[in-house]
Nucleic acid binder design. Structure first.
Length: 950
RNA sequence: GCGGGGGUGGCAGAGUGGCCAAAUGCGCUAGCUUGAGGGGCUAGUUCCUUAGUGGAUGCGCGAGUUCGAAUCUCGUCCCCCGCACCA
């Protein structure tokens, strides 16, 4: 009889919700446990990737609940940011790709128009997500559900309170920031708004000034300010139009010569400039400039320059740039060119590279080494030169140090300091002394989805969360120290991220969200409005009905910070909120994907330390990998993204929950295995039938095999519980389901289905309970059928009775299994098809003593020779030298279990006699070797009876 | 490039110095089950050889430490996550 899963799923969902068993209220008499996972962004329906993260929270929530904790597991939804807004715009523009995306998830043509409104997306997808969560049996307290952004004014107020707090603590600061910008649409362009150039970012260059005359400079752009003392000359393109511009620095106008596109970019990056005149590159050639440090160098011609890159003008460092070196060599050889540009040939030919860096394993002029290594003959061998450029950059950056020229050039002596460290110092000083100006360029071409080419724009009134603040970092390290990570091995990454994080631009101009309370033009960015909202869950159901005008910062101060202020709401309600918060906080387990360590989870810690006192800092964070489907990475293009809606009908909820959790553990990417899910369905149905057929039935007399089953059961309880505690759900399922099922299978075979009633009841109940956090539906259904009171969801987690664990019973069963295979082998060997009688001969007692002795020595050493020596110290064994030489290697190689005494071994075999008789349908006799004169008696070995077939 | 996590059989994954040809599950093969097409049970599933025993190879690749390495060290290749305003 197949199970009607749909019916069972619906039935228990309804009962849970009717009885409100997952609605959690403060209860001073019980320990609390607060579980949650980041709210998903509601721009589409939920899929299998979400399932894993939420299932980890859900399984732990149910486990803790069964352990007697008062568990709070709330869920909210995220709408902050731009994706929904831009997707809605795309619907309005009738973009085919976007329309298809919506149609693919079952939205009818007639409904499409509604999706032109961003709010409709939320209206539509939020209830869908709730439905899915409920269908999948998530034990969520739905009274506390909410959505973010100004669409939820109550939450809006909360976020504003948070930012006011941060501002007052100086955690929010103002600054400038480079963004990728669409100059036509006048807006920032994130990755999802690009037609071309995903992943390209603004890169910081330094503009280096080369003095032509008082107040007039030729300007180059560089990433390698470390080699500034090695400049030997400048290059300009003779045919390029350059511009002389006037640029203002704090009312000090300067004249710069740069390419025209570069001039435009400077303007976009917030500099005030005026173009004075245009100059052809040719006109500059032959002039001299004064460099940082006072040297004078020549301006020379080169044709490899690109006006669109940098300033269209470069300085040359032939010691550490192969391009520069080969260009110089080419020119020095080119008499025609020297003449054409009326250059002083002697002076040009006298230019030599200036060594500046000491590079491990290379000469003073590494560029020379590389030209030789790759056998570069001219500057036209672009491929080789590009390769050298990359290699050399890496080499200098990580394994070079500055030479003696850097002793006094800067305020610090940089001689022998590594380039990696010195580069920053040099940058700072060049900027301070006015020799350099920071400048941004995109790492590659970016085209917005409005088909405009993007630029770098410097936003100058951007608000930042000061994650770069050392004091703040220190606090977070402290918070990190006092929390548990699941798994602990993610700790290094957390520690690293906290140090690495820098100030985070936390506001933006477009999208959905909460307005910055003191600067209403800005919206709070999506990652920044989601850092301490777990606190909001504790009061979400209470604050929902409070009139907006009564909600003030004072209320939140009162509730969350215990401040002695007077909130506008009734005191009793405010106190109730405060009680909720103080009861549930801190967060005990927050679970999320490993990709969020670097931002969300780190922000979560940062903000908690900024807002709340230490006692409310998080207790635990869980991290997990990314779901793959049937061995393949999940992606829209592969079409292997399974929506959660399909789970209940296609696989059954319990199977889906089980399958996803057994897909993997820790930071590995879990694998969703569809064939596993399908196979599991049958197994669970079989389990269901087994329970119904066997519970409450069976014999009363207790046998050794029953003890064995009990012993196994207790061990499995211990193992499962331990794994659950560590959120190792895969391991937990492995022992609670597969290991226990296999033990049960053996038990069934050994007893021929005649179970001991007490034992089988205990096995069935325990397995149901151990699996209940993962398979609650079948759990409830069987629980009810067995006549158990209440919900299994609220039943007590099994406790192992350690007294029932007896390792000897394991050994005994091991022996029975060995004997079974031996008998089969011997029957096959003997060619007797239907044996009349089988004799089992238990080894003589001296062999037991011998094996005992060997095992005791093996505990101290695994060395064969030492074991032998140890044995021969005792004369009683010495006479068995030959035997021992055979046994020891066997014991070392194969696991031979023994019981302590031949009498015990005999007893176990005696008790299994009827089992053997039934297995082989023939008579059995079991005797000790001492009483037998059969030649096989000699081969009998502890743990392995001699077998004779008649 | 940087930081973190990984690379084990047809597949998913256990195993972190000897009991390892390697748990468990999936898949596959055979036998049984008087029962119909995703059912159950039992056995097998690297190669060579045998009636069982046995032998060889083997845990990304290369080297090393050790009596002994999937496990420790070094080098090297590959995969996943993140590297920022994007949820």
């Amino acid at each position: 009889m197949a199970l009607d899963w749909q019916k069972i799923q619906q039935k228990w969902q309804d009962r849970w919700s009717k009885e409100k068993i997952f609605e959690a209220d403060p209860d001073k008499n019980r320990k609390k446990f607060f579980v949650n996972a980041p709210y998903p962004y509601v721009n589409s329906i939920l899929h299998i990737g979400h399932l894993y993260t939420y299932m980890r929270a859900e399984a732990l929530a149910r486990f803790r609940r069964m352990q007697g904790y008062n568990v709070l597991f709330p869920q909210g939804w995220h709408a902050t940011g731009t994706p929904i807004v831009s997707a809605a715009k795309r619907v309005k523009d009738k973009e085919p790709k976007q329309l298809k995306l919506l149609k693919d998830i079952g939205i009818k043509d007639s409904e499409l128009k509604k999706f032109e409104n961003p709010e409709y997306w939320i209206e539509y997808f939020r209830p869908k997500a709730v439905e899915d969560f409920k269908a999948l049996g998530m034990s969520v307290d739905w009274r506390r559900e909410f959505i973010t952004t100004s669409l939820n004014p109550h939450y809006d107020k909360f976020i504003q309170w948070q930012f006011n707090k941060l501002k007052r603590g100086n955690y929010v600061i103002k600054g400038t920031f480079p963004v990728v910008w669409d100059p036509v649409e006048n807006c920032a362009i994130g990755d999802h708004d690009r037609a071309e150039g995903e992943g390209e970012t603004p890169q910081e260059f330094l503009l280096i000034k080369h003095k032509l005359s008082k107040n007039s400079y030729a300007v180059s752009a560089t990433l390698r300010q470390d080699t500034i003392l090695g400049i030997t000359n400048l290059y300009v393109h003779p045919q390029i139009q350059y511009a002389e511009i006037e640029i203002n620095f704090n009312a000090h106008p300067e004249h710069w010569i740069i390419s025209e596109p570069a001039a435009r970019r400077l303007e976009q990056q917030g500099h005030k400039i005026k173009v004075q005149r245009k100059i052809l590159g040719k006109e500059l050639i032959g002039q001299e400039t004064e460099e940082f440090g006072g040297r004078k160098v020549l301006i020379l011609p080169a044709t490899f320059l690109d006006p669109d890159f940098g300033t269209g003008l470069v300085h040359s460092v032939p010691s550490d740039s192969a391009d520069d070196l080969i260009a110089l060599k080419d020119l020095q050889k080119d008499e025609k060119k020297l003449k054409e540009f009326k250059l002083n040939a002697e002076k040009v030919k006298a230019i030599r590279p200036i060594a500046v860096l000491k590079t491990q394993g290379y000469s003073d002029i590494p560029a020379e080494d590389f030209l030789r290594k790759y056998n570069v003959q001219s500057q036209n061998e672009r491929e080789k030169l590009e390769k050298i450029k990359k290699e050399l950059y890496k080499l200098s950056h990580y394994s070079a140090a500055f030479n003696h020229l850097y002793q006094k050039a800067f305020s610090k002596n940089l001689e022998n300091v590594s380039v990696e460290k010195g580069k920053e110092i040099i940058k700072k000083e060049l900027i301070q002394t006015g020799w350099a100006v920071p400048y941004y360029e995109l790492t590659g071409k970016v085209v917005s989805r409005y088909l405009n080419e993007c630029i770098v724009k410097i936003v100058d009134d951007q608000w930042f969360l000061a994650y770069g603040n050392e004091r703040w970092k220190k606090q977070v390290h402290q918070a990190l120290k006092q929390l548990t990570l699941y798994p602990e091995k993610s700790r290094t990454q957390f520690e690293y991220v906290v140090d690495w994080l820098n100030n985070w631009a936390c506001t933006r101009e477009a999208g959905l969200g909460t307005r910055l309370p003191w600067d209403k033009k800005w919206l709070i960015e999506s990652l920044s409005d989601s850092t301490i909202y777990m606190a909001y869950y504790t009061i979400a159901h209470l604050i929902k009905d409070v009139p907006l005008e009564k909600i003030s910062d004072a209320l939140f101060d009162f509730v969350f910070l215990n401040k002695k202020v007077k909130p506008k709401v009734e005191l009793s309600l405010a106190k109730k909120m405060r009680e909720e918060f103080n009861y549930w906080y801190p967060v005990d387990f927050r679970n999320s994907g490993k990709d969020l360590i670097q931002n969300h989870l780190a922000f979560f810690l940062f903000n908690h330390t900024a807002i709340f006192p230490k006692k409310h800092w998080p207790n635990g964070i869980g991290v997990n990998g990314w779901v793959a489907v049937d061995g393949e990475k999940m992606s829209k293009s592969k079409g292997n993204v399974i929506p959660l809606r399909e789970m209940p009908s296609q696989f059954g909820v319990d199977c889906a929950r089980f399958t996803i959790l057994s897909g993997g553990e820790e930071l590995d990417d879990p694998n969703w295995d569809s064939s596993f899910a399908i196979a599991l369905k049958n197994k669970l149905e079989q389990f269901y039938e087994f329970c119904a057929a066997n519970y409450g039935k069976g014999r009363d007399n207790q046998l050794k095999i029953d003890d064995w089953m009990e012993s196994q059961l207790q061990e499995i309880i211990l193992k499962t519980t331990e794994a659950m505690e560590k959120t190792l759900f895969r391991s937990a399922l492995q022992s609670a389901y597969f290991e226990l099922s296999n033990a049960l299978k053996w038990y069934a075979r050994r007893t021929k289905g005649a179970y001991h009633q007490k034992t089988i009841n205990s096995v069935i109940k325990t397995q149901l309970l151990l699996l209940a956090p993962v398979t609650p539906f079948i759990g409830e259904e069987v629980w009810e059928q067995l006549g158990q009171p209440g919900f299994i969801s609220l039943a007590a987690w099994p406790k192992a009775n350690k007294k029932l664990i007896d390792p000897k019973l394991d050994l005994a069963e091991e022996m029975i299994k060995n004997t079974l295979t031996d008998i089969e082998a011997v029957i096959k060997l003997s060619k007797i098809e239907k044996p009349a009688k089988i004799i089992l001969i238990v080894a003589p007692s001296w062999k037991f003593q011998l094996v005992d002795k060997i095992i005791s020595i093996m505990q101290k050493t695994a060395n064969q020779k030492e074991i032998m020596d140890g044995l021969f110290k005792e004369p009683q064994f010495k006479r068995y030298g030959q035997e021992i030489a055979k046994i020891v290697p066997k014991l070392l190689q194969t696991k031979i279990n023994t019981l302590n005494h031949p009498k015990e071994e005999l007893n176990y075999l005696q008790e299994a006699k009827s089992f053997f008789e039934q297995e082989f349908s023939c008579a059995f006799e079991i005797i000790t070797a001492e009483k037998s004169d059969h030649p096989k008696a000699k081969t009998a070995f502890p743990g392995k009876a001699g077998v004779v077939v008649v």
